[in-house]
């Protein structure tokens, strides 16, 4: 990833609680940051921050100390759906999009002073795609290697008796235990609503940012007429579809309804989804992130 690419600007929702100094507003009171209040020296015995003017003005001659809002660091996790459906190749390869997004996210996080971690899941947790949160600057290189497009599950693959799918996302919650974290849930969200609900419930205490990776060929650029022999990347099942304007309309309606349902579900647990369509536009992503 070239260093010319801008960083992703993200802001955790609400004040965070962390001892590590960083870039995000926190509930932590400290010696640096924005001014918070004046307290007696006995309450906050920091001789460096004695406010001479306030001390002189105090009628009871109490020594006053200035306190500041400490800015803190947060752990950023990318929770990546490694199921076969992300092998989709439309305008772009979804897997490559996801990898690029995670690389930029890792670099942005470590440059901001936050720690970045990676959890890859398909039918279960994928240990070879797991990176515990780290502040190492080189983590983006590790991410690029761990999220090579070949890491995504193969179509219809049943590995160790497990069915294809993204059931592993629901098992990731224990890896995010502890303090409140930012979790980017990166998937195409072609998942059963029940599974999505369980994933959101498991991560409810964190700041979940759903990132929907989509492709315009999945909806806008469907043909009006003709036969399509569709093959499910997940289950490898085939289905013949006779496209015609009526069916295309119904298809797009169903797709819109599904997106709306995802948005509704995500909103209930915090944020509305950020959508990446066809190409990764970092500036737009950052803007959407601020609005989400």
């Amino acid at each position: 990833m070239s260093p010319d690419v801008p960083d992703i600007h993200y802001r955790p929702r609400g004040a965070i609680a962390s001892w590590r100094a960083g870039a995000h507003p926190s509930r932590q009171v400290g010696a640096l940051g924005a001014f918070r209040d004046l307290v007696p020296f006995a309450t906050y015995p920091d001789a460096r921050r004695i406010d001479v003017r306030a001390t002189a003005l105090d009628p009871f001659e109490t020594t006053m100390v200035r306190r500041f809002r400490q800015r803190a660091a947060i752990d950023v996790y990318a929770l990546v759906d490694l199921s076969a459906s992300l092998r989709y190749q439309g305008q772009a390869a979804k897997a490559a999009l996801v990898r690029d997004l995670c690389v930029v996210l890792a670099r942005s996080a470590t440059r901001t002073g936050d720690r970045f971690g990676l959890i890859g899941c398909d039918a279960g947790m994928r240990q070879e795609c797991f990176l515990p949160a780290t502040a190492r600057r080189a983590v983006s290189t590790d991410v690029a290697e761990r999220l090579d497009p070949s890491r995504w599950a193969a179509a219809g693959m049943v590995k160790g008796g497990m069915q294809p799918g993204a059931e592993g996302l629901a098992q990731a919650a224990p890896y995010l235990a502890g303090a409140r974290k930012m979790a980017f849930l990166i998937s195409d969200f072609l998942l059963p609503m029940d599974l999505l609900r369980r994933v959101f419930e498991g991560l409810a205490m964190h700041d979940i940012v759903p990132v929907v990776v989509r492709d315009s060929t999945e909806e806008e650029e469907l043909p009006d007429w003709g036969l399509l022999d569709l093959a499910d990347l997940e289950s490898a099942r085939r289905r013949l579809v006779f496209m015609r304007p009526g069916l295309k309309r119904r298809w797009r309606e169903a797709e819109r309804a599904r997106q709306a349902a995802i948005r509704q579900l995500a909103a209930r647990y915090g944020r509305t989804p950020v959508t990446v369509i066809d190409r990764l536009d970092i500036d737009r992503f950052s803007r959407d992130l601020m609005e989400a």
Binding site: S85, L86, R87, Y88, Q89, K94, A155, D188, L190, E218, L227, L228, D229, L230, A231, D232, L233, E234, R237, R238, R239, L240, V241, F242, L247, R250, W251, A254, E255, R258
Partner: peptide, 24 residues
């Protein structure tokens, strides 16, 4: 299948269609 394969993420998003099923 003798037809050109069109890979999609999930065929569950495609609405059910009797005409297509019959044609198949």
């Amino acid at each position: 299948s003798p037809h050109r394969r069109t890979a999609v993420g999930s065929i569950a998003v495609v609405p059910a269609d009797h005409l297509s099923a019959w044609l198949g």
